[in-house]
Design a protein around this nucleic acid. Structure first.
Length: 596
RNA sequence: GGCGAGGUAGCUCAAUCGGCAGAGCAACGGACUCAUAAGCCGUGGGUUGAGGGUUCAAGUCCCUCCCUCGCCA
């Protein structure tokens, strides 16, 4: 670790704006990104956390067709819900935008053109189902028919629900359009392909350079896959009218394929953030800077797109993006540094499923519980190395024993005791004993210990380490028993209480990336004027494509620092209230009844 | 079918290069009273999915099989 601030990009998965966000989505990518980002803000690094709603793609058009409303309305409805959830949960994006913006359109089209100039695109003709009645090509999931493997009559275009086989839509027997039941015909259509075969050596090099620290699940899913099955060209355009138009004459009625286009959002959102922040070239610090580190927080289903496709796109544009976009010569876009993908979270021992209602929804959860309770449970149970399981009994138990009991109660018991016996002022310590010095040292070293774990994105272990520190302070208190000392030697009791308060003031910072709302509250109890973190707010942004609401973060005037800061003796502080709510075990049963 | 991840105490998970299988929760016992009946001390709890192999030594390495999950075809 150096003293010089580093440039860190926290690139967070883009939710499809066609369904609500559940706890699996949150623990998979959004929450780990926020914890990581908050840590780096406290460290004083230049961290940029960006994402947005994926407004294009078939999930949105399917919903749009089903409800008979325009795709843009579908996107806007869910996007609004995302913004509300992220603010309530404290997911502090520097910018959460959308792919349906003029800026993103321009950036995505430029990436396309840069790849084309650099010789990594080619065209090929393929056949696809075409609906004469609707006058359009049908995406795979718009076609149903008879499975050519098992004979099941209601097979979907891409998969048979009866025999489980993934299907080649063009081979379906008795095909019919899902929208009007008419019989489609196969028609030839030309598409652009990304030449992944030609890019493969560079992708392999990219992965091998990072072999030492990229999680093994990510590495094997990408590098292992490539070594077994070499990469081949993949179409990046589609016959759709909802999306980013292909920027080539004669191709205006086709769109960029969403797998190709959505990942470009990390770059376009950084550019939009720069424009909104008043320094339109600020994004160069992260994207034209080989020392900047980009961390891509995603779920395991997205690994190939972030560890293979996106690096391939970035490598493939070479210096052409800068040339075409802002007349920059000799600059290459920075490749990802790490892809800390999480596995999945199950729900009460079953696969979590949004469409079946077998899920806990973020906004619904927050109507009954505190945001930090959710952040805590999702972090302590985060699926970092393997699938984890949401269990309501466990949620209540962990909340009550670890969050409330070990940490919340520690803060409450010491502040209450101190407030009662020293009239609302931090006691002035006498000479420190060996025990006092030892506990201070233990907690001070936590900044480095917990920090190292956060640095390497082992968030679950980091939170456990923080809890262990709180437990150490509880032990110290029990051994020192200031409630006995105060009756015979108030100066000694004051020294003990000062030491404990100092530890809690440290721990407030160490816990802050995980449970920021309560730590901010504790920070005010201690009587500080400037908050630990900045504010989140929304802002309407207008452009040629209409208006979108952006979620932003205002970082100015914050007092949080990831270093031990000396507590001022004699300073006034507030009488505390409990930081966390203890839960009645019977809520677990009520919550289970809500599922499904 | 190809690639991959996982299977460890009742539950949730650790275990660096192969070196006496550990935590938290739950259970049980104890002392304490500042605190949200929280916290602290102590006890019990294991055929590491199954079988085989390598080794002085295997949760870890090799082979076969079983189960769960993901991506791809």
């Amino acid at each position: 670790m150096t003293d010089k601030p580093e440039y860190i990009l926290a690139a967070v998965a883009w939710p499809y704006s066609s369904s609500e966000i559940h706890v699996g989505n949150i623990t998979g990518s959004y929450l780990p990104a926020d914890i990581f980002t908050r840590y780096h803000r406290l460290k004083g690094n230049h961290v940029l956390m960006v994402s947005g709603s994926d407004a294009h793609g078939t999930p949105i058009t399917v919903k749009s067709d089903a409800e008979g409303i325009p795709p843009v309305d579908v996107y806007k409805r869910y996007h609004a819900g995302f913004l509300e959830l992220f603010q309530k949960l404290g997911l502090s994006y520097d910018l959460f935008t959308s792919t349906h913006t003029e800026n993103h359109t321009k950036v995505a089209q430029t990436i396309f053109l840069a790849l084309k100039e650099n010789g990594y695109l080619y065209t090929e003709t393929q056949s696809q189902w075409f609906s004469e009645t609707e006058g359009r090509f049908l995406p795979d999931r718009y076609v149903e028919g008879t499975c050519y493997i098992c004979g099941y009559e209601d097979a979907r275009g891409d998969q048979c629900d009866n025999c489980g086989s993934l299907l080649d839509a063009n081979e379906l027997l008795n095909p019919r359009s899902k929208t009007d039941g008419s019989t489609p015909t196969l028609k030839e259509t030309e598409h652009f392909f990304l030449d992944l075969g030609k890019l493969e050596p560079h992708v392999v090099e990219f992965l091998e350079e990072r072999e030492d620290y990229i999680r093994s699940n990510v590495l094997r899913q990408s590098l292992g896959q490539i070594k077994a099955n070499p990469l081949h060209g993949r179409p990046i355009t589609r016959d759709l009218d909802w999306g980013i138009p292909v920027p080539v004459e004669g191709w205006e009625d086709k769109c960029l394929y969403v797998w190709f286009e959505a990942v470009i959002g990390y770059l376009s959102a950084s550019i939009e953030w720069s424009a909104l922040s008043g320094d339109k070239d600020a994004w160069h610090n992260w994207w034209y800077n080989p020392d900047a580190r980009g961390y891509y927080f995603i779920g395991k289903d997205n690994i190939p797109f972030h560890a293979v496709m996106w690096p391939a796109e970035l490598y493939g544009v070479g210096e052409w993006f800068g040339k075409l976009y802002d007349n920059t010569e000799g600059k290459k876009l920075t490749l990802p540094y790490d892809v800390p993908a999480n596995e999945f979270m199950n729900m009460q021992d079953q696969k979590l499923s949004g469409s079946r209602g077998w899920a806990v929804w973020g906004l619904d959860f927050l109507t009954r519980y505190q945001p930090d309770a959710l952040r805590f449970y999702l972090t302590i149970n985060m699926p970092e190395t393997k699938d984890s399981n949401w269990d309501w009994d466990e949620f209540v138990t962990r909340n009550n024993t670890q969050l409330v009991g070990t940490w919340g109660n520690l803060a409450n018991r010491v502040l209450s005791f101190a407030h009662k016996h020293w009239e609302g002022h931090i006691p002035t310590p006498g000479e420190l004993t060996a025990e006092d010095k030892a506990i201070l040292k233990t907690v001070e070293e936590g900044f480095e210990g917990v920090g190292d774990l956060l640095e390497t994105v082992r968030l679950r272990a980091a939170l456990l380490a923080a809890l262990e520190l709180a437990s150490e302070v509880n032990k110290y208190l029990d051994e020192m028993a200031p409630w006995s000392a105060v009756k015979v030697d108030k100066e000694r009791a004051g020294t003990i209480v000062f030491t404990a308060l100092q530890c809690i003031d440290y721990l407030k910072v160490i816990f802050a990336p995980f449970v920021p709302h309560s730590c901010e509250q504790l920070h005010t109890y201690f009587g500080y004027d400037t908050p630990l973190f900045g504010n989140q707010y929304t802002q309407p942004v207008s452009d040629a494509q209409g208006e979108h609401i952006a979620l932003r973060y205002q970082p100015e005037e914050t007092g949080g620092k990831w270093v031990p800061q000396r507590l001022e003796a004699g300073k006034a502080f507030q009488k505390p209230s409990p930081l966390y709510e203890k839960l009645d075990p019977k809520v677990a049963e009520e919550e289970r009844a809500r599922l499904g």
